[in-house]
């Protein structure tokens, strides 16, 4: 009987489709995604002193550092928002972006051993990484909400409105951006490993290049164009606009950033897809 005349459950061929996203298969492995998330949570904070408190400690300490450096020494404005609240807002979004990007960029190197031994839909790993980071975001965001409440009690008028319901959309927007970039980098780091080292350094630099600890309005007009080229700028400004009611960003910059995010994600999934097939032979 001819090969093609028969019915097969699975056909393995050398040329994989250029782009194929098997959502159904991934759904079948949702238990695995859940277990990966659980594993990552469990092992990150086993045998540590503070445990999950690190989720809170990190942005809190950085916010205090910002308070000293940007407010007290550099004297940059926070547009009338209590400085610590302003910095914390920036940190929530920045932590989401940087940690997610970093974790996604390591999917191959962290899992090369499993990938070389068992077949399962590889996309489950970056998905699990995303959900793992979501935990951190939720905890930090709750802390931010608490801080916001405390500031209101202390006399900050606040800017509570229905628009705040859009905040999750900002998180999705930043996550898409971070996942996409992370996956693109993950593909490159399988070949050039020093990039993984450079990445941590580049990330800490780019925190200062993004309006995390200062508003865009503090940036001189001539420099703004460059700032708006950074897709994270729009997300940060939008987030603060929703939270505090001020901040200025043009609709064009928002559209540009959103388009960028989706392009990154698409490219990231493509790179990932190309790599998941071949990297076992490369590493």
């Amino acid at each position: 009987m001819n090969f093609d005349d028969q019915k097969w459950d699975t056909v393995i061929e050398p040329k994989q489709k250029w782009f194929s996203l098997n959502i159904k298969q991934i759904m079948e492995y949702k238990d695995l995604i859940f277990l990966f998330v659980k594993r990552d949570m469990a092992i990150t904070y086993k045998q540590t002193i503070l445990g999950p408190l690190w989720y809170i400690m990190e942005p809190a300490c950085t916010s205090i550092m910002c308070l000293i450096v940007f407010r007290n020494i550099a004297g940059l404005s926070t547009e009338g928002v209590p400085p610590i609240l302003f910095y914390f807002a920036g940190m929530v979004l920045w932590t989401l972006f940087s940690k997610l990007l970093l974790s996604e960029s390591k999917v191959f190197s962290d899992n090369q051993y499993i990938f070389g031994k068992v077949y399962f839909p590889r996309l489950t790993v970056p998905i699990a990484v995303f959900f793992g980071e979501l935990n951190r975001l939720i905890i930090q965001f709750l802390l931010f909400a608490l801080l916001y409440f405390v500031c209101i009690m202390k006399g900050y008028p606040g800017a509570i409105s229905l628009k705040m319901l859009l905040i999750p959309a900002i998180f999705v927007w930043v996550s898409i951006q971070a996942c996409g970039l992370g996956l693109i980098i993950s593909g490159v780091t399988t070949k050039y490993r020093d990039l993984a080292k450079a990445l941590t350094y580049l990330l800490s630099l780019s925190m200062y290049l993004s309006p995390v600890a200062y508003p865009l309005s503090e940036v001189s007009v001539g420099m703004r164009v460059f700032y708006e080229l950074n897709p994270l700028t729009a997300a940060l400004e939008c987030f603060r606009k929703l939270c505090f009611g001020n901040g200025d960003i043009s609709p064009g910059a928002i559209a540009y950033s959103v388009v960028c995010s989706f392009v990154f994600l698409l490219a990231g999934v493509l790179v990932f897809h190309k790599n998941e097939k071949s990297f076992v032979d490369v590493i």
Binding site: F3, Q6, K7, W8, D9, T10, V11, I12, E13, P14, Q16, F115, G116, K117, V118, Y119, K277, S278, V280, D281
Partner: peptide, 18 residues
Amino acid sequence: LISQVATLTKGKIGINGN
């Protein structure tokens, strides 16, 4: 190759069942 951990360079494999 059969368990899809490594990719084929040529030919094809058909599998029935999981």
